[in-house]
Design a binder for these strands. Sequence first.
DNA 1: GGTAGACCTGGACGC
DNA 2: GCGTCCAGGTCTACC
Length: 293
Amino acid sequence: MPLTLPIAPPFSLASIIRSHGWYQLLPFQCGEDATRLSYTSRLSSGKVILLEISQSDEGVTLDVSGRLTQTEQHEVNDQVRWMLGLEQDLSSFYDLADKEPKLRRMRTHSQGRILRSPTFFEDVLKTMLTTNTTWGGTKRMLQNLVEQFGEPLPAEPARHAFPTPHRLSASTEAELRSVTRLGYRSPYILELAQHTASAELDLESFKTSQLDTPDLRKELLSIKGIGAYAAANLLMLLGRYDYLPVDSWALKMVSLEWYQGAAIGVKEVEQAFERWGKWKGLAYWFWNWENQG
DNA sequence: GGTAGACCTGGACGC
DNA sequence: GCGTCCAGGTCTACC
């Protein structure tokens, strides 16, 4: 059942897929060439479907397993629009990036949109699992979580949707720790799922929040397991680029780029990108570091 | 407001 | 095969 979404150039699905490592995390799946993306999705009706996303001359093409009702089609469209950031207008950023040699390629390569999960709950949870671990550890924890708690795709039971907050909230800290191997993050993940399932925390409302960015950041920091790095990363996914997700890799790259490899802190990274104002996160994310490291 | 130490896992390394 | 060390952000207690 193919559906098509119109796009406004500059747009490149391949650039979105490669915008960061999310495409390597279940329930995303992607071939070697990273030009098509699969996602196992659980719709609000409870139906689990496989979404195959590709780019054609007409726009973004969605191949969906099985028949969908009109309501389900709308839901799938909304999910993919959000995942690919189709609502974003980056034209004023491109005007600035065109003047910076380290970012000039962004317009010609149609870069700037960052791959998101369909729900903000999923992105918050995934971001928690990127902290204080290696990328291999993040992939392993996500695989355990999705395979243990995600609903299987009926036609291909090896594929699973992302676990719902309700399903996760029914687990225990001990199970998440010893079976899912989430380590000390287990109570944070459990609390996130429980607060989301009980509607005490409405993460999806963050997508359309009218709060200014500093206040939205405070809301994110109030979630156990979300610190400065994770909050900045999540603000980026919400399309707000005022803060920098500074991790140990960023400290190294910025030091090599502007400080001759000297030991630096978060302040120095922020100073390096201050001139980009509300776009600083995007400039940092796509900066061409290729002469470093 | 700033800082030190604990948290947890898995990979790398030495024996 | 076993033990030790290390990397990776966040939280909490303390100053």
